[in-house]
Computed example of a mutant assay.
Amino acid sequence: MSTGVLCIHGFSGGPYEVEPFVNYLREQTDWQITVPTLSGHGEELHLRGFTAKHWLMDAEIAYRALAKKVDEVIVVGFSMGGIIALYLAKRYKVKNLVLLSAAAKYVNPTQLAKDIKMLASEAYQRNLHKNELFLRYQHKFNNVPLSATVEFMKLVQTVAPYYKDIRNPIYIVQGKLDGIVPYHTAQFLYDQLGSQDKYLYFSDNGKHHICFCEDCEDWFSQVLQFLQGP
């Protein structure tokens, strides 16, 4: 049985968001892995004019293309990509789901305030140009129109009614220090999803970009074991 993995990045992001996990899977398996770039996304953002329907269709096209080449498809989704992964599981045959910082709810004000406070401190000390969080989000702050954010929220609301219908085996990974998706969102999803075969991993030090967290190697191996089965 040949296996394919479709990895879907997050809102206003790109394939780089899941790259560490993708590289790990490529090193450990012979699976065929596809990481599409959603419309308007990538290293350079051009989101104006694109809608939730575009992003869902991008994912469907990528799924169909991969499904023609392999016997089984696994879908991995980061942030908004996690919600798109659930959408695909509702509509298509998906062997397993992996949800990374899945954005069923978004913006954790407490953690975001801490992050902003840290940025302000580094700005005062003139170290801001070296801060990874600032560099990662500076581009997004300047290049994400409100209309695109509204479409992201529409996408989440579109998929939410179907959580209980998702019965695929699922592994959920969530950082407790996530400033974008409140960490309790993972427990909410775990409780809402209809699957009986589901797992939940909390990273104590993980932030939103969970594939770059300090303990990522721990959950990389656990997720791979889950995907490979008994």
Rank of each mutant, 00 (worst) to 15 (best):
K114S: 14
D215R: 04
E60A: 11
G49P: 15
Y137P: 02
R126E: 14
L146T: 09
D115C: 15
D218R: 05
E151I: 10
E122T: 08
D197T: 14
A67F: 12
A85T: 12
I170D: 10
A113N: 11
Q111K: 15
P15Y: 00
N96D: 12
K95G: 01
H46D: 08
M80V: 12
L25N: 06
A123C: 04
Q111A: 12
D115V: 15
Q196M: 09
D191C: 15
F212E: 13
Q125W: 09
S101E: 00
G40I: 01
D58E: 05
E214T: 11
V73G: 08
L128G: 11
A102P: 10
F202G: 01
S203A: 13
N23C: 03
L227I: 09
Y137T: 05
V156P: 01
Q196K: 12
G49N: 12
H139V: 06
Y106S: 14
D71N: 13
H54Y: 11
E19D: 11
G42N: 00
Y190R: 01
A103P: 14
L177H: 05
A103D: 06
V22D: 08
H9E: 09
E132A: 15
I180A: 04
A160G: 03
T185S: 04
H209F: 07
L227G: 04
Q174M: 13
E151D: 09
I210V: 14
G175K: 09
C211A: 15
A52Q: 00
L45P: 01
V5W: 02
G229C: 05
N205Y: 10
I170C: 13
W31E: 09
Q222N: 07
F21R: 05
L135Q: 14
K53V: 14
L66D: 10
V94S: 02
K95Q: 05
F212I: 07
H184Y: 15
H184S: 10
R64G: 01
D30E: 10
H9A: 15
L155G: 01
T3F: 07
D197L: 14
N168W: 09
K164M: 04
F152Y: 14
A67V: 15
L38D: 03
G206S: 10
E44M: 09
L47V: 02
I33N: 05
A104P: 07
L146V: 11
K69S: 15
A102R: 02
L88Q: 08
Y16H: 15
E17T: 13
V181W: 01
L227T: 04
S221G: 03
A59N: 02
Y87A: 03
E122P: 00
C216Y: 10
Y16V: 12
V73H: 07
H129G: 00
Y92H: 11
Q32Y: 08
K105C: 03
Y16D: 13
K90A: 13
E43S: 03
G13A: 10
T149G: 07
A104Q: 08
D215M: 04
K105T: 07
Y190M: 04
K69V: 13
A103N: 08
Q125G: 06
K117H: 00
F134K: 00
N108Y: 11
D71T: 07
Q228V: 02
F78L: 07
D204M: 05
V181G: 00
H54P: 01
H184L: 15
V5M: 06
T3N: 15
T110K: 04
P15G: 01
M1E: 04
L133T: 05
